[in-house]
Simulated assay, not measured.
Amino acid sequence: MRDQLRMRLGQVWPELEIIGEAKNGDEAITLVDELKPDFTFLDIRMPGKTGMEAAAAIGGRSHVVFVTAYDAYAVEAFERGAVDYVLKPPEQERLKITAERLKERLARPAGDVNASVTAMLSQLAEKIATPKPKFLQWIQASIGQDLRMIPVEEILFFRSDEKYTCVQTEKFEALIRKPVRDLAEELDPSLFWQIHRATLVNVNAIEGVTRDIRGRHLVMIKGRPDKLEVSRSFLHLFKQM
């Protein structure tokens, strides 16, 4: 994720100098003390101290930008302007907005927003600590006039178009109205990987990854001719394969 963020920042803000990288919250605090950066990008969940704990320790010494997957409530908290945020995986268009906000914020001391940051961190910590509902075990999907209950383990992939999401199993295809974005939050991320803004794939159904003549990465599905495109934002999922 650090590699991807560094690359994307270099594309949208070439003048930005990245002066240090940390593997965890404790290292981040130490580096801020030593290097005194204008901005610090913190993942919310890190080994040792979390991003929120690190941000509280950093205080007004650096403007904080959170890198987070928790868009369900992060957006509400962060849009108040105390700090900025970037959703995982970092998209180039969103980082352009972040870069412009940070350039404007250079004119203000980081300490000016301390009270707002403290209140936001407290609220966000409370929401993250709230027990999350269990992952979906079944999908209700339509096949013609019939409604089927499909165990999620039997689903090979989900793929959305403008109105519907296709639910593909080994034996049949069904349709639901729930978008992939919502499904990604409700399904076990260790079982279903999002490989495109419109596609979720069952990890156990992946046969491999290939490239076409246009250089696109495509996921091959076991026992099927389907090849699902992987967007650049999700290529990091297959680095270990």
Rank of each mutant, 00 (worst) to 15 (best):
R8H: 10
G10R: 06
Q11P: 00
P14A: 05
E17S: 12
E17T: 09
G20I: 03
E21Q: 12
A22N: 06
G25N: 04
G25M: 11
D26R: 09
E27T: 11
D33G: 12
P37N: 03
D38S: 10
T40I: 15
F41A: 07
L42D: 09
R45N: 14
P47G: 11
A56M: 09
G59R: 03
G59M: 04
F66G: 04
V67R: 03
Y70A: 03
A72N: 12
A72C: 01
Y73T: 14
R80K: 15
L87W: 02
K88N: 04
E93T: 08
E93W: 08
L95Y: 05
K96P: 02
A99P: 14
R101N: 15
L106Y: 13
A107D: 06
R108A: 05
G111N: 09
D112P: 01
V113P: 00
Q123M: 06
T130E: 11
K132H: 06
Q140Y: 10
Q140F: 09
A141W: 09
S142K: 15
D146F: 05
P151I: 01
E153Q: 09
I155W: 03
F157H: 15
F158P: 01
F158W: 07
S160M: 08
Q168W: 00
T169L: 11
A174H: 02
L175N: 07
I176S: 11
V180T: 00
V180I: 10
E185D: 05
E186H: 01
L187T: 11
Q194K: 12
L200F: 06
V201D: 10
N204I: 06
A205F: 01
R211W: 01
G223Y: 06
F234E: 01
H236I: 00
F238N: 03
